[in-house]
Amino acid sequence: MKPTQSGAATGAAEASDRQEAATLLRRVLLQGKYEALTMLRNGEQLILAVVLPLLALVGLTVTPFLDGMGASRIDVAVPGILALCAMSTAFTGQGIATGFDRRYGVLRFLSTTPLGRGGLIAGKALSVLAVLCLQVAVVSAVAFALGWQPPVAGWVPGLALLALGAAAFTALGLLVAGTVRPEATLAITNLLWILLGALGGIVIPAERLPAAAQGLVGFLPSGALGEALRDAFLAGAVNGGAALILLLWTLVAGAAAIRWFKWN
Protein backbone atom coordinates (compact mmCIF):
# COMPACT_ATOMS: atom_id res chain seq x y z
CA MET A 1 0.00 0.00 0.00
CA LYS A 2 1.30 3.39 -0.95
CA PRO A 3 0.11 6.30 1.15
CA THR A 4 -0.12 8.44 -1.95
CA GLN A 5 -2.75 6.07 -3.33
CA SER A 6 -4.74 6.43 -0.15
CA GLY A 7 -4.30 10.15 -0.29
CA ALA A 8 -2.55 10.07 3.08
CA ALA A 9 -0.98 13.43 2.50
CA THR A 10 -2.40 16.10 0.29
CA GLY A 11 -1.43 19.48 -1.00
CA ALA A 12 -2.63 22.55 0.83
CA ALA A 13 -4.82 23.75 -2.02
CA GLU A 14 -6.71 20.50 -2.24
CA ALA A 15 -7.08 20.15 1.51
CA SER A 16 -8.52 23.60 2.06
CA ASP A 17 -11.32 22.80 -0.37
CA ARG A 18 -12.31 19.62 1.38
CA GLN A 19 -14.49 18.94 4.36
CA GLU A 20 -12.14 16.68 6.31
CA ALA A 21 -14.09 16.24 9.53
CA ALA A 22 -17.36 14.39 9.90
CA THR A 23 -20.26 16.69 10.78
CA LEU A 24 -20.59 17.82 14.40
CA LEU A 25 -23.82 15.87 14.86
CA ARG A 26 -22.25 12.69 13.53
CA ARG A 27 -19.17 13.10 15.73
CA VAL A 28 -21.22 13.61 18.88
CA LEU A 29 -23.59 10.73 18.07
CA LEU A 30 -20.65 8.39 17.40
CA GLN A 31 -18.90 9.37 20.61
CA GLY A 32 -22.14 8.98 22.58
CA LYS A 33 -22.66 5.51 21.15
CA TYR A 34 -19.04 4.51 21.79
CA GLU A 35 -19.13 5.71 25.40
CA ALA A 36 -22.53 4.13 26.07
CA LEU A 37 -21.35 0.74 24.76
CA THR A 38 -18.16 1.04 26.84
CA MET A 39 -20.28 1.71 29.93
CA LEU A 40 -22.60 -1.22 29.22
CA ARG A 41 -19.67 -3.60 28.69
CA ASN A 42 -18.23 -2.73 32.10
CA GLY A 43 -19.44 -5.20 34.73
CA GLU A 44 -19.01 -2.88 37.70
CA GLN A 45 -20.92 -0.16 35.90
CA LEU A 46 -23.78 -2.54 35.13
CA ILE A 47 -24.03 -3.52 38.79
CA LEU A 48 -24.15 0.14 39.76
CA ALA A 49 -26.51 1.11 36.96
CA VAL A 50 -29.01 -1.75 37.01
CA VAL A 51 -28.44 -4.42 39.64
CA LEU A 52 -28.22 -2.21 42.74
CA PRO A 53 -31.26 -0.05 41.80
CA LEU A 54 -33.32 -3.21 41.16
CA LEU A 55 -32.23 -4.69 44.49
CA ALA A 56 -33.23 -1.45 46.20
CA LEU A 57 -36.58 -1.52 44.40
CA VAL A 58 -37.34 -5.07 45.55
CA GLY A 59 -36.05 -4.25 49.05
CA LEU A 60 -38.38 -1.28 49.39
CA THR A 61 -41.41 -3.25 48.22
CA VAL A 62 -40.94 -6.18 50.63
CA THR A 63 -40.15 -4.06 53.72
CA PRO A 64 -42.58 -1.68 55.49
CA PHE A 65 -40.22 1.33 55.13
CA LEU A 66 -42.53 3.27 52.85
CA ASP A 67 -45.82 2.29 54.44
CA GLY A 68 -48.27 4.99 55.51
CA MET A 69 -47.38 7.49 52.81
CA GLY A 70 -50.79 7.51 51.20
CA ALA A 71 -49.81 5.30 48.28
CA SER A 72 -48.67 1.71 47.77
CA ARG A 73 -45.03 0.84 48.56
CA ILE A 74 -44.18 0.28 44.91
CA ASP A 75 -45.71 3.59 43.78
CA VAL A 76 -43.63 5.49 46.34
CA ALA A 77 -40.48 3.46 45.64
CA VAL A 78 -40.22 3.58 41.81
CA PRO A 79 -39.71 7.36 41.34
CA GLY A 80 -36.87 7.29 43.87
CA ILE A 81 -35.28 4.30 42.14
CA LEU A 82 -35.40 6.13 38.80
CA ALA A 83 -33.68 9.09 40.47
CA LEU A 84 -31.09 6.69 41.90
CA CYS A 85 -30.44 5.37 38.37
CA ALA A 86 -29.67 8.90 37.18
CA MET A 87 -27.20 9.36 40.04
CA SER A 88 -25.56 5.98 39.31
CA THR A 89 -24.96 6.65 35.64
CA ALA A 90 -24.47 10.39 35.42
CA PHE A 91 -22.48 10.96 38.61
CA THR A 92 -20.71 7.81 39.76
CA GLY A 93 -20.31 5.80 36.54
CA GLN A 94 -19.61 8.71 34.26
CA GLY A 95 -17.39 10.47 36.83
CA ILE A 96 -15.17 7.44 37.35
CA ALA A 97 -14.89 6.76 33.61
CA THR A 98 -13.95 10.37 32.89
CA GLY A 99 -11.43 10.43 35.75
CA PHE A 100 -9.58 7.43 34.34
CA ASP A 101 -9.86 8.71 30.75
CA ARG A 102 -8.12 11.81 32.02
CA ARG A 103 -5.39 9.77 33.72
CA TYR A 104 -4.67 7.73 30.58
CA GLY A 105 -4.53 10.76 28.27
CA VAL A 106 -7.70 9.70 26.43
CA LEU A 107 -9.24 13.14 26.91
CA ARG A 108 -6.13 14.80 25.51
CA PHE A 109 -5.94 12.49 22.51
CA LEU A 110 -9.62 12.86 21.64
CA SER A 111 -9.41 16.63 21.95
CA THR A 112 -6.82 16.60 19.13
CA THR A 113 -9.24 14.76 16.82
CA PRO A 114 -12.14 16.54 15.07
CA LEU A 115 -14.28 15.57 18.09
CA GLY A 116 -12.62 18.22 20.27
CA ARG A 117 -13.34 19.06 23.89
CA GLY A 118 -16.90 20.26 23.33
CA GLY A 119 -17.81 17.20 21.28
CA LEU A 120 -16.29 14.93 23.89
CA ILE A 121 -18.40 16.43 26.69
CA ALA A 122 -21.51 16.35 24.50
CA GLY A 123 -20.81 12.71 23.66
CA LYS A 124 -20.48 11.85 27.35
CA ALA A 125 -23.76 13.60 28.17
CA LEU A 126 -25.43 11.73 25.31
CA SER A 127 -24.10 8.38 26.53
CA VAL A 128 -25.51 9.13 30.00
CA LEU A 129 -28.92 9.79 28.44
CA ALA A 130 -28.74 6.60 26.37
CA VAL A 131 -27.86 4.42 29.35
CA LEU A 132 -30.49 6.18 31.45
CA CYS A 133 -33.14 5.34 28.84
CA LEU A 134 -32.20 1.67 29.13
CA GLN A 135 -32.34 1.89 32.94
CA VAL A 136 -35.80 3.49 32.80
CA ALA A 137 -36.99 0.71 30.49
CA VAL A 138 -35.65 -2.08 32.73
CA VAL A 139 -36.78 -0.53 36.03
CA SER A 140 -40.24 0.31 34.62
CA ALA A 141 -40.68 -3.23 33.30
CA VAL A 142 -39.79 -4.75 36.69
CA ALA A 143 -41.92 -2.14 38.47
CA PHE A 144 -44.99 -2.87 36.31
CA ALA A 145 -44.53 -6.54 37.09
CA LEU A 146 -44.54 -5.64 40.79
CA GLY A 147 -47.77 -3.66 40.39
CA TRP A 148 -46.59 -0.09 39.73
CA GLN A 149 -49.48 2.20 38.63
CA PRO A 150 -48.20 5.66 37.76
CA PRO A 151 -50.64 8.34 36.52
CA VAL A 152 -50.40 8.85 32.77
CA ALA A 153 -49.94 12.60 33.33
CA GLY A 154 -46.80 11.91 35.34
CA TRP A 155 -44.65 10.64 32.47
CA VAL A 156 -43.90 13.93 30.69
CA PRO A 157 -42.85 15.95 33.76
CA GLY A 158 -41.25 12.85 35.29
CA LEU A 159 -38.98 12.10 32.33
CA ALA A 160 -38.17 15.79 31.75
CA LEU A 161 -37.12 16.23 35.40
CA LEU A 162 -35.17 12.97 35.26
CA ALA A 163 -33.22 14.38 32.31
CA LEU A 164 -32.63 17.62 34.22
CA GLY A 165 -31.44 15.62 37.23
CA ALA A 166 -29.09 13.64 34.97
CA ALA A 167 -27.69 16.94 33.66
CA ALA A 168 -27.03 18.14 37.23
CA PHE A 169 -25.32 14.88 38.19
CA THR A 170 -23.31 14.81 34.93
CA ALA A 171 -21.98 18.30 35.66
CA LEU A 172 -21.13 17.27 39.24
CA GLY A 173 -19.46 14.07 38.04
CA LEU A 174 -17.36 15.99 35.51
CA LEU A 175 -16.43 18.54 38.17
CA VAL A 176 -15.08 15.83 40.48
CA ALA A 177 -13.42 13.86 37.66
CA GLY A 178 -11.73 16.94 36.25
CA THR A 179 -10.26 18.28 39.47
CA VAL A 180 -9.01 15.37 41.59
CA ARG A 181 -7.04 12.18 40.93
CA PRO A 182 -9.04 9.25 39.50
CA GLU A 183 -8.61 7.20 42.69
CA ALA A 184 -10.13 10.09 44.64
CA THR A 185 -12.93 10.39 42.06
CA LEU A 186 -13.63 6.69 42.57
CA ALA A 187 -13.81 7.11 46.34
CA ILE A 188 -15.80 10.36 46.34
CA THR A 189 -18.42 9.35 43.77
CA ASN A 190 -18.96 5.91 45.31
CA LEU A 191 -19.17 7.27 48.85
CA LEU A 192 -21.58 10.02 47.83
CA TRP A 193 -23.68 7.48 45.93
CA ILE A 194 -24.10 5.47 49.13
CA LEU A 195 -24.60 8.49 51.42
CA LEU A 196 -26.97 10.36 49.11
CA GLY A 197 -28.70 7.11 48.17
CA ALA A 198 -29.41 6.26 51.81
CA LEU A 199 -29.78 9.69 53.42
CA GLY A 200 -30.02 12.20 50.58
CA GLY A 201 -33.78 12.04 50.13
CA ILE A 202 -33.48 10.17 46.84
CA VAL A 203 -35.16 6.80 47.47
CA ILE A 204 -36.35 7.45 51.03
CA PRO A 205 -38.56 10.56 51.21
CA ALA A 206 -37.35 13.39 53.44
CA GLU A 207 -40.14 12.90 55.99
CA ARG A 208 -38.82 9.42 56.76
CA LEU A 209 -35.30 10.71 57.45
CA PRO A 210 -33.92 11.91 60.81
CA ALA A 211 -35.22 15.36 61.72
CA ALA A 212 -31.78 16.95 61.37
CA ALA A 213 -31.56 15.88 57.73
CA GLN A 214 -35.07 16.86 56.68
CA GLY A 215 -34.49 20.58 56.14
CA LEU A 216 -31.30 20.03 54.21
CA VAL A 217 -32.12 17.27 51.74
CA GLY A 218 -34.57 19.34 49.71
CA PHE A 219 -31.65 21.51 48.65
CA LEU A 220 -29.46 18.60 47.59
CA PRO A 221 -29.65 17.43 43.97
CA SER A 222 -30.57 13.98 45.30
CA GLY A 223 -33.44 15.23 47.47
CA ALA A 224 -34.71 17.66 44.84
CA LEU A 225 -34.73 14.97 42.13
CA GLY A 226 -36.34 12.38 44.42
CA GLU A 227 -39.10 14.81 45.45
CA ALA A 228 -39.67 16.05 41.90
CA LEU A 229 -40.06 12.50 40.55
CA ARG A 230 -42.35 11.43 43.40
CA ASP A 231 -44.58 14.46 42.77
CA ALA A 232 -44.67 13.62 39.07
CA PHE A 233 -45.19 9.86 39.25
CA LEU A 234 -47.50 9.85 42.32
CA ALA A 235 -49.70 12.86 41.50
CA GLY A 236 -48.84 13.90 37.96
CA ALA A 237 -47.66 17.24 39.41
CA VAL A 238 -44.72 19.48 38.50
CA ASN A 239 -42.60 20.51 41.50
CA GLY A 240 -41.30 23.90 40.34
CA GLY A 241 -39.15 24.48 43.43
CA ALA A 242 -37.32 21.19 43.03
CA ALA A 243 -36.86 21.85 39.30
CA LEU A 244 -35.33 25.23 40.11
CA ILE A 245 -32.91 23.65 42.59
CA LEU A 246 -31.84 21.06 40.00
CA LEU A 247 -31.33 23.79 37.42
CA LEU A 248 -29.17 25.76 39.85
CA TRP A 249 -27.02 22.70 40.61
CA THR A 250 -26.59 22.10 36.87
CA LEU A 251 -25.55 25.69 36.19
CA VAL A 252 -23.24 26.07 39.19
CA ALA A 253 -21.55 22.67 38.80
CA GLY A 254 -21.32 23.16 35.03
CA ALA A 255 -19.71 26.57 35.39
CA ALA A 256 -17.30 25.23 38.03
CA ALA A 257 -16.40 22.29 35.79
CA ILE A 258 -15.75 24.63 32.86
CA ARG A 259 -13.60 26.83 35.10
CA TRP A 260 -11.56 24.17 36.92
CA PHE A 261 -11.59 21.05 34.74
CA LYS A 262 -8.01 19.95 34.08
CA TRP A 263 -7.55 17.99 30.85
CA ASN A 264 -4.22 16.45 31.84
Binding site: A21, L24, G105, F109, P114, G116
Partner: peptide, 15 residues
Amino acid sequence: AGLRSRVGVMLQDGG
Protein backbone atom coordinates in the same frame (compact mmCIF):
# COMPACT_ATOMS: atom_id res chain seq x y z
CA ALA B 1 -12.69 20.73 13.90
CA GLY B 2 -11.53 21.63 10.38
CA LEU B 3 -7.95 22.30 11.47
CA ARG B 4 -7.89 19.35 13.88
CA SER B 5 -8.96 17.03 11.06
CA ARG B 6 -5.80 17.95 9.13
CA VAL B 7 -3.45 17.26 12.02
CA GLY B 8 -2.56 13.84 13.45
CA VAL B 9 -1.23 13.50 16.98
CA MET B 10 0.53 10.63 18.69
CA LEU B 11 0.92 11.46 22.37
CA GLN B 12 3.80 10.20 24.49
CA ASP B 13 1.47 8.18 26.72
CA GLY B 14 -0.64 6.96 23.82
CA GLY B 15 -3.92 8.39 25.07
